[in-house]
Design a protein around this nucleic acid. Structure first.
Lengths: 201, 201
DNA sequence: CTGTCATATTTACATTGTAAAGATTACTGT
DNA sequence: ACAGTAATCTTTACAATGTAAATATGACAG
């Protein structure tokens, strides 16, 4: 019976701000129990509302998840922007840190079979984030004879791959083998430093 | 009513080689309709068998998908091995090419909520593939002052990220912007060449 | 107050995976 | 060859999912 915020006008038939309450509940459930637990009935039960109450606000479950993913991309864009204001490395770190600090949300943002990528709001938010990565790659290191899109893909692939592997827990053995006292975030920061220092084939 | 192979002894109550038939049917359905279409009832219907026929062979749907993912890691390890026999770049290309040529399978292999990672056969096959990547990174470029696990993570993250982005269709705009006549595989090969040539931060 | 409309509920239904029990066939030991 | 055992597959039944359709509720403008 979590009513999400206290700003509700009254207890009654109409919730008042059900849209944000549903998003908040879904997001909490997403991070505590994973994307597999994102069932419509579970979300609405936690808010104290009937399952079909999502219809006026999101249409259906897919719409709710798409709105949540959209919110995720907006936050990701903001994180990259503020990171890039400091340094190029921080922009990459912002991408990775956002992913491992919001693992469920980040996973949902790239799950094409759970969300509706043709949704205008989602496409806009995702496009904004991707465009930021493009400018990031443009101002970063280049190599002669390669299209800028190649640089952008490599840049993006690096941070995205590390983020996904970290979320899936596949880096933890490597982290512990490096130093049992080290943190995952510290490990990833070293990885970004390594990328700058080494030429890697 | 696809009976998968012709090696069936008789038409009858017992299928004969249902295990491989189910795996083949699931894999075909995986690549033609995506991981979201991997429903138990759809798979068994295509083989012409009742849904609960998976029980003796795989236990349940999760067991079937885990066996399929295990098979995928075995094939991936083989692809990396034969690629590494030629060059380091080919080892990376083998990883990426396997992913984009078996997009559904590759996606399934890393979907922790659809498979059982504690399954011994799966853990063994996945571990073998990951170990190969470790030796790959060890023989690749290094940088002073960094643990070998850092190099391994970066290496793995690069190819994994590009593979995931390519499967999700997020690289196609970049590919077309580069050259409308270019192929995705050619684009990715250039990306690997770029990684060798450029120092990237 | 009254009509209108967005909001939320209720009911019903098709679909999912699977536990339990039964039917069918293969295999093994004598 | 033949009985007994075990593996394989089917049937039935059930809980849980998302949602279409119809209904109820309340907010709000006139």
């Amino acid at each position: 019976m979590v009513r999400a915020t206290t700003e509700r006008s009254k207890e009654g038939y109409h919730h008042g701000n059900l849209r944000v309450a549903l998003l908040a509940s879904a997001r909490e459930m997403l991070e505590t129990q994973g994307v597999a637990a994102l069932k419509l009935r579970a979300i609405t039960r936690q808010v104290g509302v009937s399952p079909m109450a999502v219809a006026p606000h999101f249409g259906n479950l897919c719409g709710l998840l798409t709105a949540l993913a959209t919110q995720g991309f907006e936050e990701l864009a903001h994180a990259i922007k503020t990171g890039k204001a400091r340094s190029l490395k921080d922009a990459g770190l912002a991408y990775i840190y956002f992913a491992i600090r919001n693992p469920g949300l980040f996973t949902l943002m790239f799950r094409g079979d759970a969300i509706d990528r043709s949704d205008p709001a989602f496409a806009g938010a995702a496009g904004d984030s991707f465009a930021l990565l493009g400018t990031w790659a443009a101002t970063s290191g280049k190599a002669a004879g390669f299209a800028p899109q190649i640089a952008e893909a490599v840049m993006w692939g690096k941070v995205h791959g590390l983020a996904i592997l970290a979320i899936d827990g596949l880096l933890t053995p490597l982290v512990q083998a490096t130093d049992p006292h080290i943190d995952l975030e510290q490990f990833l920061e070293q990885a970004l430093d390594y990328m700058k220092a080494a030429t890697s084939g």
